[in-house]
Structures are given as structure tokens and as C-alpha cells.
Amino acid sequence: MTSKEALYHYVLKMGDSSLIMGHRLSEWTAHGPVLEHDIALTNIALDYIGQARMLLTYAGELEGKGRSEDDLAYWRDAAQYRNSLLCELPNGDFGQTVVKMFLFDAFQVELHEALSQSPDEQLKAIAIKSLKESKYHLRYSRDWVLRLGDGTEESKIRIANGLEAVWMYFGDLFAPSEGESVLVSDGIVPETASLRKRVEETLRKTFEEATMAVPDFDAVMQEGSQRGIHTEYLSYILSEMQSVTRMHPGATW
């Protein structure tokens, strides 16, 4: 595999993850727990989708077949999507949403930090811009993990249940994209698995501060996203997201 092909898969993993995270989060818009948080969640959804647009546009360029962000977002099926499994999980209650965001954001901060040094100029530029956003996202989701973890008896139970529901998808965040080893040996990206220690550290510290049980980092994890094997949820997300577009092939919106 050429470096360019490998980079296409790598950027696709990032872009799809941001898109599906943003999509799920946008389901909260108009239904948030209180106005201020409706606005905050939508802001973060907008950041994720903004990142997805940059990444998918870049993926299209790398692929070289003239596909746009919309071609990639709307005209691929679940098996062609490369987002991490965590992103596609249902929102559940606010506790589950927050803890899912927290795992993702902790990962994103490390990823964007590392990619800010990438010799690939475009990836570097996207990472630098995204890092500012991820840091804010992490501040937001981490604060809520603390509030819910150390809030009321009810919130403590709810967020623990939320964590339990998403935990087995944590490992898949670190699954290497197709051909990642080529990029690693060329020094373009870090080995994704190498980010894991630092992410786990953030998690451990936060869960401890939140007086929550720290999950088992060696638990059996689900994987498969980088081979196109997803959960049952993704195809539902896509059938909804792509419905209007696919009814009208060739139309402009």
C-alpha cells in the first residue's frame, strides 16, 4: 500500500469518527437537559461535524477519485465507514452521552496533540485547529463526569451504568487504520496504540476524582471498525442521515 492510500484510510477513520460523533450529539439539539446545555452540546456537535468536513474533504483529495465530503458522507454504506465503534453507540441518557464523549475527547486530545507535529502539512493544520476544540470538549465532558460521578446518588448510578454500557468499545479507538504501519514507519503519524497509556491516565485520574470505580483497562474489548465490521446501530444512523440525499441522486441542495 502506498503512503497516500494509507493516509486516505487514516483520515477516513478520523473523519468518519467525527461525523458520527457529531451526528449522535446533534440528536440532543432541542432536547437537552436545560437551555444552556442544549447550546453547549450543539456547539460541540458543530465542532465535530466541522472537523468531519475538513477531514472528509481531505480524504477525497487523497483518494483522487473526485469524491467530495458529501459523496463520502452520503453515498457509502456502513461496511465502508471507518469510524470507531464508540462513536455510533446510542446517546442513552445524558450520563451515558457525557461519558462516551469523555472517552472520545480524551483520545482526541492525545491524537490531535501528536498530529500537530505531523510532517503532512494538511493533516497538521487540521490537527492544530482541532486540538483547540478537543481541549475544550474534554474540559466540558470531564467536568460533567466529575459532577455526575460526585453528584447525587442517582447521578452516580446513572453515569456508572453509562460507562458500563460503552466501556467495551474503548479499545477500538486505538485500532490501527488500514495501512497505518506504513504511515508510522514514514513518521507521518504516531502508532495509535501508543497513545493509549496517556489516555488511560486521563481516565484513571478523572474517574478517581469523580469518586467512580476505575474500569478494567484489560477488559475484553470489541473491535472491527477498521475492517468495516460495525455495531447494529451504524446502519440505522446512515439510513436516517442519507435518506433525503439518496432519494434524489444527482440533486443539488
Binding site: E36, H37, I39, A40, N43, R139, Y140, D143
Partner: peptide, 13 residues
């Protein structure tokens, strides 16, 4: 802290 982040999201969009 919440007031600050809320204000950031509401008034500096």
C-alpha cells in the same frame, strides 16, 4: 465554572 462555560457557549458563538 459552569456559569463561565455556559456564558462562553451562549455569548461568544
Amino acid at each position: 465554572e459552569q456559569a463561565l462555560t455556559n456564558a462562553r457557549d451562549v455569548y461568544t458563538r
